[in-house]
Nucleic acid binder design. Structure first.
Lengths: 210, 210
DNA sequence: TAGAGATCTTCTGTATGCAATACTGCCGCC
DNA sequence: GGCGGCAGTATTGCATACAGAAGATCTCTA
């Protein structure tokens, strides 16, 4: 028996496919075909689909199976502020003790982002790491779980998150300011910049809808 | 084929059992026994268990099935502020237009609470209705989904939410003040009282741990 | 008598099978 | 020509079956 249930791997794989568009918005998921393609039976596959539906990355249509939710600009406009507030909350609920050493680590990742930007590489992976690190000290496991569930939904809309080098540079600057505010122990300032970081991302998103 | 998937009913039933303590904290869930008892097969039962684990009402131990998470005072201390902030957020994101008529409806439910209090009845059901009504106009479906997922976790700790008639009366008063603030269009005041309402509930909870 | 090991049972995780519904294409009718 | 009904197929939702790991029990030894 595998240490890790099959459904976990399947959730990951299907999430990837939904995010990169291999599962088109609005399309239905055919359980038999997908199970055969992934080399598993329908049982763990259905378990994964149900998990994804609980997180909102799929929707369950009784009698018709599961389908990828269509894109909805309104949804994006609501998801960004939601993630922003949730992350800010997680930050506010991280005690100063637990924040020790974090600003330096954050700046190190921000440096990586700058390097990646110069090289013209994709920033989203590094950006993700930065945010994960930022929240890593928050003791509220349930809040972190909610954030983890919500972010993938947002990533569907994030195709052009770093709308150009200008926005990327600006975003890196915001990251550095958050770290600086944390160093000063100014949590309100840090979370304010954090929220703005997310909201600006949304603004840029609107300019280049897929 | 049923219009409503079996797993939905099962989720409801199992949630109830976890909340009322019929499934003891820390206990393992035996799929075969439970399936037989509920008159279903293991397949939809497992689907329900997975859904509940995603919401945090159960935990999945690979190779050992599902178990009811043990009680943890720290968890309660984190869940109450979390729900408080989430509800406040939902309230802030409800536009004034959509709030029209809501205060009166809220006060009507608050009246019900007062009546129930005089009769010595259980207030939690009415209280739940009041909060549901408060958030019913919020357009952010994802936020509402998160709240819906989190509240049941909190209810496990809520055995003595209305710690005595004094607290109950106080809580009803807070509800009325929230409605009044909404009538005045003072959203910040409303959400501040709302948060305090939840935090006070937590304070009372601590006095009478099960 | 306590502990380690082997064996046996129980239970989970996955696969397969079955019945009923939803979809598709076709034919007849308006 | 378009629309409604009907037969056939495809697909879901649930039930059952099977293999292997976790847990329990028993035995043997120190």
């Amino acid at each position: 028996m595998a240490r890790t249930p099959l459904r976990s791997d399947l959730i990951e794989e299907i999430t990837t496919r939904v995010l990169d568009g291999r599962f088109a918005a609005g399309a239905r998921v055919n359980e038999v075909h997908l199970a055969r393609e992934l080399g598993v039976s329908r049982t763990p596959l259905r378990e994964a689909l149900i998990g994804l539906a609980d997180r909102g990355l799929l929707v369950s249509a009784p009698g018709r199976g599961f389908l990828v939710p269509p894109f909805d600009p309104d949804e994006a406009r609501r998801l960004y502020p939601l993630v922003a507030e949730l992350e800010a909350l997680a930050l506010r609920w991280t005690s100063p003790l637990e924040l020790a050493g974090l600003p330096d680590a954050l700046d190190a990742v921000a440096d990586e982002m700058a390097v990646a930007l110069e090289r013209g590489e994709d920033l989203s992976e590094v950006d993700e790491r930065w945010h994960e690190l930022l929240l890593s000290r928050c003791p509220n496991a349930h809040l972190l779980r909610l954030i983890g569930q919500t972010k993938p939904l947002l990533k569907r809309y994030e195709s052009c998150y770093f709308g150009g080098a200008a926005r990327a540079a600006e975003s890196i600057g915001e990251h550095r300011r958050i770290a600086a505010a944390l160093r000063d122990g100014d949590l309100p300032a840090a979370s304010a910049v954090l929220v703005r970081n997310w909201v600006k991302a949304l603004a840029y998103l609107g300019k280049d809808e897929r």
